[in-house]
């Protein structure tokens, strides 16, 4: 198996004073390019920890994490930042757009750090906004947009650096069910039409079912790993 993401016997132990919490216990799986994976679990199941490690925001205590074949499990903070800006697009539950910046400027933000030439940025950001259907809202600031629109801007921001993986952390957690469906449809589209690899973390089975594959976590271990049958 030679997936885009491959984790082998990942463990993560948090030390809170004398107490050691084992958040992940020897988790292994791999993800192929073009997959739409949902990681599901209740709170405390270790799914958020898994997300942080997959997103290169954190490193595992034990085990190996290969991203596009490179071992990234022992990298330093700045080396991880380098990986993040080229390989990963984040979508957060709280949107995490910067206030007082237009949608376009928010989408351009990753390119500030990953070395895209300034003259290219406007066009690439516009393309990404159009991909999520917000081309006409480019000059609106986050507070002038609805929750669903803000999340679309965030998705455009995740798309803009052409990262091989899009990581979505409870992307519909702050949205009503109708808007949630729209966002999940957008992910499905991006996966189907553009072949983007998407990994989402959620605790809602309904949202998880949009993925072509669902990995269920419990107590820091993989409980189930199954393909969904969706038309």
């Amino acid at each position: 198996m030679n997936g885009i993401v491959r984790v082998e016997s990942i463990t993560k132990i948090y030390s809170l004073g004398d107490v050691k919490v084992e958040a992940l216990r020897k988790v292994s799986f791999s993800v192929e390019a073009g997959e739409f994976l949902s990681i599901m679990g209740a709170s405390g199941s270790g799914k958020s920890t898994m997300m942080n490690i997959l997103g290169c925001l954190d490193t595992p205590t034990g085990g190996q994490y290969f991203l596009e074949g490179h071992n990234v499990s022992r990298l330093s903070g700045d080396e991880l930042a380098d990986i993040r800006k080229h390989k990963i697009g984040f979508v957060f539950q709280g949107f995490n757009l910067l206030p007082r910046m237009t949608a376009l400027e928010n989408v351009k933000l990753p390119m500030l750090y990953n070395g895209v030439h300034p003259s290219m940025r406007d066009r690439k950001a516009m393309d990404a906004l159009e991909m999520v259907g917000l081309g006409d809202r480019a000059n609106h600031q986050p507070q002038q947009l609805s929750g669903g629109q803000q999340q679309r801007v965030a998705i455009a921001r995740a798309l803009v650096n052409d990262a091989p993986i899009i990581l979505a952390d409870e992307p519909t957690g702050n949205l009503d069910s109708r808007t949630s469906k729209d966002i999940m449809d957008l992910f499905t589209d991006l996966n189907r039409e553009y072949g983007r690899t998407i990994i989402q973390v959620t605790h809602e089975a309904e949202m998880a079912s949009y993925g072509k594959r669902v990995i269920t976590f419990r107590d820091g271990m993989v409980l189930k790993d199954e393909r969904t049958e969706r038309p």
């Binding site: 700045d78 930042a81 380098d82 993040r84 995490n96 750090y113």
Partner: peptide
């Protein structure tokens, strides 16, 4: 703090 977190997630390094 949150802005700093966002910038870091998007690839800002310590020096940035």
């Amino acid at each position: 703090t949150r802005e700093i977190g966002i910038r870091m997630a998007l690839g800002a390094k310590t020096i940035d």
